[in-house]
């Protein structure tokens, strides 16, 4: 097979968990003020999502329906605590910056969503690929948002100066808004708009539409 398997490539752009399903937004806002924190978060999520999907898929035939969510969450939480402990031992400063957000991967809907909708019904290898694909899709959005926010918010990328700031004698005035959470909403919103403009089939139908009262009142 020449092409990359679909579970891996599909969630990158077409079925991206962030832009299509609007999942994982909370952490996408919180950890994207700088590229380094975003990349660390991505690495943590890639590990958790691949391992969780693989493990859950491996025991999927023996998971009782009645307690499946509890088992899935237990496995996910174990992996999250594990990566948090590892980060605190080997990447202490970054783990301080990420604070609670590594722990909050437990509540990241992407992880439980892939476990429930894919890993429970597919063999181990496709599940791991699906996990990897979704984690990479999430990472792609995070890296794009973090690059924009760090570059325009501070004039730096991964802490290295790129645009000379006024404070440092250059011409660039950092946009303070970029370092605040709302800017991540704007950037993700623009990304969703761009993807849906290119793929009109992703546009959602309105849930509600206005009905004129006049036509309703007339018998």
């Amino acid at each position: 097979m020449m092409r990359l398997p679909r579970p891996l490539t599909d969630p990158l752009i077409r079925a991206n968990p962030v832009t299509l399903r609007i999942l994982g937004i909370c952490s996408a806002l919180a950890v994207t003020t700088s590229l380094v924190t975003a990349l660390t978060m991505c690495a943590a999520l890639i590990f958790v999502l691949c391992a969780a999907s693989g493990l859950i898929s491996a025991i999927r035939r023996h998971i009782p329906q009645s307690i499946r969510l509890i088992l899935q969450i237990t496995i996910i939480a174990t992996l999250v605590i594990l990566i948090d402990e590892v980060l605190r031992a080997y990447a202490f400063e970054i783990s301080q910056l990420l604070s609670i957000f590594v722990g909050l991967i437990v509540t990241n809907c992407i992880v439980l969503g892939r476990a429930e909708s894919f890993a429970m019904h597919h063999p181990v290898w496709p599940s791991v690929l699906d996990g990897l694909g979704n984690a990479l899709g999430y990472s792609l959005v995070l890296v794009i948002v973090a690059t924009i926010r760090e570059l325009f918010g501070t004039g730096q990328l991964s802490g290295l100066p790129v645009l000379p700031t006024v404070a440092g004698g250059g011409w660039f005035v950092p946009l303070g808004l970029m370092q605040l959470a709302p800017s991540a909403f704007f950037i993700i919103g623009l990304l969703i708009w761009a993807i849906r403009a290119a793929r009109p089939e992703q546009a959602e139908h309105p849930d509600h539409s206005l009905i004129s009262l006049d036509t309703k009142a007339t018998p």
Binding site: I59, P64, S66, L71, I75, T78, L82, E85, V86
Partner: peptide, 30 residues
Amino acid sequence: PNEDPVKALGLAGLVALASALTLSTAATAL
């Protein structure tokens, strides 16, 4: 069968045990 209470309890216990062992080992080592 998966819905058998013994299997449900047993599997929950096994997953919990594996998680606890992994985490206590990691926490102690790190």
